[in-house]
């Protein structure tokens, strides 16, 4: 009986002090559950590294005047592999430094969120490029591949961003919009344009400025704003 009265007294005290405590508790639970599912590795080094790789690949492609489809694929698939491998090592190092597991549920969620858009980019690119090349569309296929990849990469970032941050989701949208806008611009201008492509329509410049430039800007921004997790 005394326990029951204790409980009632406790509730009366609580409700008198804070009438909306139950609602606030529910809100705290919701917030914590959302945060617990988020990916918390520092993104600044990953973004910066990816940005530097992208800018380097763009510069190499532009300076070497690589215009063939094979050359474009070679440069940018290599850049993707280096960026992916480097990001993996950076994140793994962060996990080791913090004494935590690498393959955590939030990491799994981020990887699986990226997987489908990346696979879609590969699957959509191959047959379409074969079709264009078969029709003698080498000139057409490279800018198309660049725009397609930017679009799918943006979708991947947006999906993964659901478990990372609002900024990453936003960056995903920027990639999608720039990819689509470039395709539209390229298609419109090349209808009336003769001679060498202007700088801003060069696929290497486009990829370097977006894949490289956007990531680098995001990396620098995160370097100054990202909350640093205490390490043991």
């Amino acid at each position: 009986m005394s326990t029951l009265l204790d409980k009632i007294a406790l509730q009366c005290k609580v409700t008198a002090v804070q009438p909306n405590w139950a609602e606030e508790n529910l809100q705290v639970i919701r917030t914590l559950m959302e945060r617990a599912g988020l990916y918390r590795r520092a993104m600044a080094p990953v973004m910066t590294f990816t940005g530097v790789v992208g800018l380097t690949a763009g510069a190499v492609g532009r300076l070497a005047s690589v215009a063939s489809l094979a050359g474009f694929l070679g440069i940018w698939l290599s850049a993707a592999l280096i960026a992916g491998g480097g990001s993996f090592l950076i994140i793994r190092r962060q996990a080791l430094t913090a004494g935590e597991a690498f393959w955590t549920p939030p990491t799994r969620r981020v990887v699986f969120a990226l997987l489908q858009p990346f696979a879609a980019a590969a699957l959509f690119t191959l047959p379409f490029l074969c079709l264009l090349v078969g029709k003698g569309g080498e000139l057409l296929s490279v800018p198309f591949a660049a725009s397609l990849w930017l679009g799918f990469y943006g979708c991947g970032l947006n999906s993964a961003g659901q478990f990372i941050s609002h900024g990453v989701r936003l960056l995903g949208w920027v990639f999608v919009i720039v990819g689509a806008a470039n395709l539209h611009l390229w298609q419109t201008l090349t209808m009336v344009h003769l001679g060498p492509l202007p700088l801003h329509l060069d696929p290497h410049v486009l990829m370097g400025a977006t894949f490289g430039g956007f990531h680098l800007v995001a990396g620098i921004y995160l370097y100054f704003t990202e909350k640093r997790e205490p390490t043991p």
Partner: peptide, 23 residues
């Protein structure tokens, strides 16, 4: 304890250090 239970309800498992930093 409510914080611990909430975090663990969202993530199937969580390292001690991660939980400490989160909360």
């Amino acid at each position: 304890r409510l914080g611990i239970m909430s975090a663990l309800a969202a993530a199937s498992e969580m390292p001690f250090t991660e939980l400490r930093d989160l909360l």
